[in-house]
Nucleic acid binder design. Structure first.
Lengths: 197, 197
DNA sequence: GTCTATAGTTGGATAGAC
DNA sequence: GTCTATCCAACTATAGAC
């Protein structure tokens, strides 16, 4: 998050809050101006258009998340890397729940002006998970399963994280991390010999 | 899916297709009328409002999915139940990808006219997964982890399923099911003695 | 039951004063 | 750099002919 003038910051904060409630398309510039406590003209002095406003907002948030995941994975590998990636992703969602909601609602849209940015972000974020998965289970790479497994781990963390923050917020974060990792631990599956892909 | 007149069906089909591309808020009644091949007046003869149109559409789809999950789980338990639930959910997403995209983009919105319906659906669908998880790992119930684990399994299947259908559609469905279940199999985690919650 | 035409409102964006 | 006032396009919804 780059430092910026109070007005610009207030506009961005208002925009993400409202978009978390109503989605981006459901957010009007009038509402943003009102919640930010500025006139609508100031929105267009600071941002070229509604699309540009949200493009910047999502781009900034996605870049920060990708960077956090990359930094977290550094120096670890395999299952340990999966543990820190899940922890870091969940922490990012908790620290910026509104942004996480907006991204979650937007991630599979293909009609956005910023779809290239969004696509690249998703690719980079999933690549961190995929790398860790391949380290933990090399044969997943050969069968092409690793990419799908990365989506699975990411999706599990995102949905459990939002479920937690929106409906069960008193629960300590450590318990949520533990529950997600427990899902991947194999304790749901019967203790069995090798399983085919 | 209830049988209905050609016009009503055409309107619903057009609405879900466009909403999958642009989201519900981004879908206009003019666009729906045009794609359905009817005049806009016919939309309002068949549905009271845009909200009622989508409320019915999502309600119908969510009810069908919940029913499919309930039926699939019947007669199984534990890990076997998780396997059929994941398979059934993935099959439903594949059979109705447009609807799945719309639901995925809408599931964490709190401002919708149909939020009660949506909330109840999510609760019922997750309950099927939670039941299976508690059968497979009874201690998850005591710690309160089971609900979060149900969200994890659901989220993993949803995200991997959409990733598959939108970006890797030639892959056979059986491989996708296998990759998701492999994520939960424990083969990512180190072979270890008992793990604390 | 479906159409055309239009009413009424909202929302993105801009002009110009301060 | 921020405000007020306004333009204009797009949208939901309705009226009334057929």
């Amino acid at each position: 998050m780059v430092r910026m003038t109070g007005t610009k910051r207030a506009i961005l904060d208002a925009a993400i809050e409202i978009a978390a409630e109503r989605g981006i398309s459901g957010t009007t510039m009038d509402d943003v101006a009102e919640r930010a406590g500025v006139a609508k003209g100031s929105l267009y002095y600071n941002f070229a258009s509604k699309d540009k406003l949200f493009e910047g907002l999502l781009g900034e948030g996605m870049a920060a998340l990708t960077e956090a995941l990359r930094g977290a994975r550094a120096g670890t590998a395999g299952w340990a890397a999966i543990e820190v990636l899940v922890t870091t992703l969940l922490g990012s969602i908790a620290a910026n729940t509104a942004l996480a909601k907006v991204i979650a609602g937007d991630i599979f849209r293909t009609d956005r002006a910023w779809r290239e940015t969004s696509f690249a972000f998703k690719h980079d974020a999933l690549a961190e998970f995929e790398t860790a998965i391949v380290e933990a289970l090399p044969e997943a790479s050969a069968t092409g399963a690793a990419t799908l497994m990365a989506s699975s781990v990411f999706g599990a963390t995102l949905m459990a994280g939002l479920q937690w923050l929106l409906f069960d917020e008193e629960r300590p974060q450590s318990e949520v991390v533990a529950a997600i990792l427990l899902t991947f631990s194999g304790r749901l599956a019967p203790a069995s010999p090798s399983r085919e892909l």
